[in-house]
Design a protein around this nucleic acid. Structure first.
Lengths: 333, 333
DNA sequence: CCAAATCTTCGAAGCGCTTCGACAGCGGAT
DNA sequence: ATCCGCTGTCGAAGCGCTTCGAAGATTTGG
């Protein structure tokens, strides 16, 4: 293994000089810098992460806790994960992955061990059991999602209430009178996952305000569940012509069911999805959708975490505005 | 922050004694152990990871490099990732995530910095540019996937050649004479990703051996591509009645296309998928499939990595045998 | 009852790095 | 010529832990 001392010897300077060349925390003459850089390159030196963490008291690692059992749509999770890793590397940080089932204990362990300098949590429940731990440790933390009580916490999320409202508005604008929200699975509501409830509230309020009759049903991702949900909605209110789908996995079955029922999309019925663009684009017809800005959320979370590490004040909720992309699954009636 | 020294003071012993209680590397009297454990619990002590890494020369971290751009089906990746993390925790290891686009440099950086004790790589290409780096560093490494030259490397993967063969066998057993393999996207073959090529070879060989006429076409995950691929196959050889689908994303469009064409599944045509059980189960009808043992691969990779760290010899390829689950999308004709 | 063997525990060194205080050398102002 | 304030560099301390050798304490066998 090549150490700082080896580099110092090769460059004919002291160890501290090499350290300062690396960190730039003191001015070092041009000529010395070059000699040191040469030695580093020649020897193939990489600083020892543990030694660094010990001496400097920060690990250059961000911990990211991802949901294990997935109510959330997996591709979205993965997109956030890669965004976080990519953004972290730009700040010269690595990313440690934890699974949600490590819970608060896992966070405490990481925070106390100094393995990571900051925590990023996904899949936040309204009354998330990990939040008390966040308040107990002093490690910077960012939530991707919104708990019910976010005082003192730094959060980032899509503005799901505005998303629900935007969907209601779009359908109202197109002249639909009876609309339905085909939501996430029962399980998601039972766990009080914030995004689903906020979407629902935003949708219902705006629908009411625009004089629409709205209906909401949870839906699993299976063909059977999608069929059952649609049947029940149409049985209860056959005049329903506007559909908002939140559970991405239900989109393909739903589209083929509507086709089977002879309800043409978009000529007779409009379908609006809340999903990543990729999903909306590979469905036929391409779906009008509000996209889930996974990339932005991931990057934003890292940015907020780094700001906290830099001592900045970041407490509060960053709500990303929904962007409605009009494609070929919605039309005026 | 609570340190070893604090614990030692509280327990009235020396620091080294506390260390030995924690590691169990020397015998410590029952009574002292208890006193130390009490102090640890009282103070809420967690060892500092960096200090540990520095002194002991291992980080208790496994690095996992996941593909960034996804030719592989995302849910499978995620399942492997969670399996790796979960298994790693059972060995008291944490997992550092790297993205594939960090490439060999990323691996070198991690290996040299001592940030991780072992490397686990996913999405292996036949002639993967990261492999020379693996041979250069001395850090233990495990590949999930098979490169063309695996001498000196430790690999684990589903036996895709046997998988392709099993699919051909199943269709032959059912009496199909003309069969098609609807493969991964062009891009996957262009990059010489091992699993796709091995599946194809296994399928073609066995099909030939069983006297079947076989055809192979790559396929993207979009509706359009699935439609185009199917049209071309049926145009070229309308007598085709047995289909093997490797690209999971193509399954839903393919099933609805066959339905539209009036080709009943399984009465007239058989469809066999290579996909996670979850996907096979939520399609209608449920698909006969060879499952991708993501969990086993992830756990296995960790087991192999830990074995290497323990100084055991693990070089060689672990090929997991395919398991064909017969469901409702294949039938005798 | 003593020496040898064994069990417990301790002190000190050192892992590779950062960082603080100090100091030499320098030019400019006096 | 003298003092001052720079700039550039160095040495040493110390981060929290593991581990080695050794020293007391205790037990065992003769």
């Amino acid at each position: 293994m090549v150490t700082l001392a080896d580099v110092a010897r090769a460059a004919g300077v002291s160890a501290s000089t090499v350290s300062y060349v690396l960190s730039g925390k003191r001015s070092i003459s041009e000529i010395t810098q070059e000699r040191v850089q040469r030695a580093i390159a020649d020897l193939g030196y990489t600083p020892h992460a543990g030694a660094r963490a010990l001496a400097s008291n920060h690990a250059n690692v961000l911990a990211l806790m991802v949901p294990l059992r997935s109510d959330m749509y997996v591709p979205v999770i993965m997109e956030i994960v890669t965004a976080v890793i990519t953004a972290a590397r730009e700040f010269d940080q690595d990313v440690l992955m934890l699974t949600g089932n490590e819970g608060g204990d896992g966070l405490r362990r990481i925070a106390r061990s100094g393995r990571a300098d900051a925590l990023i949590l996904m899949d936040i429940e309204l009354d998330d059991p990990r939040i008390p731990v966040l308040r107990e440790v002093t490690t910077p933390a960012v939530l991707i999602g919104l708990p019910s009580d976010s005082t003192g916490l730094t959060c980032i999320d899509l503005d799901f209430a505005a998303t629900g409202a935007a969907c209601a508005d779009h359908l109202a604008d197109l002249g639909h009178r009876d609309v339905a929200l085909i939501g996430e699975s029962q399980e998601v509501y039972r766990r009080h996952t914030g995004f689903a409830e906020r979407t629902l509230a935003g949708f219902q309020e705006r629908a009411a305000a625009r004089g629409l009759r709205s209906i909401h049903r949870p839906c699993e991702g299976t063909f059977e569940s999608a069929a059952g949900t649609l049947t029940r909605i149409l049985g209860e209110r056959p005049s329903t012509t506007g559909f908002v789908v939140q559970n991405e996995a239900a989109i393909p079955p739903l589209m083929s069911l509507l086709r089977q029922l002879g309800r043409l999309v978009p000529e007779e019925n409009s379908v609006l999805a809340i999903c990543p663009d990729q999903v909306a684009l590979q469905t036929s017809p391409q779906l009008t959708s509000v996209s889930i800005p996974a990339e932005e959320m991931g990057r934003g979370a890292v940015r907020l975490a780094m700001a906290q590490l830099a001592g900045q004040q970041t407490v509060g909720s960053t709500l990303l505005p929904p962007k409605l992309a009009i494609r070929h699954s919605t039309a005026a009636r």
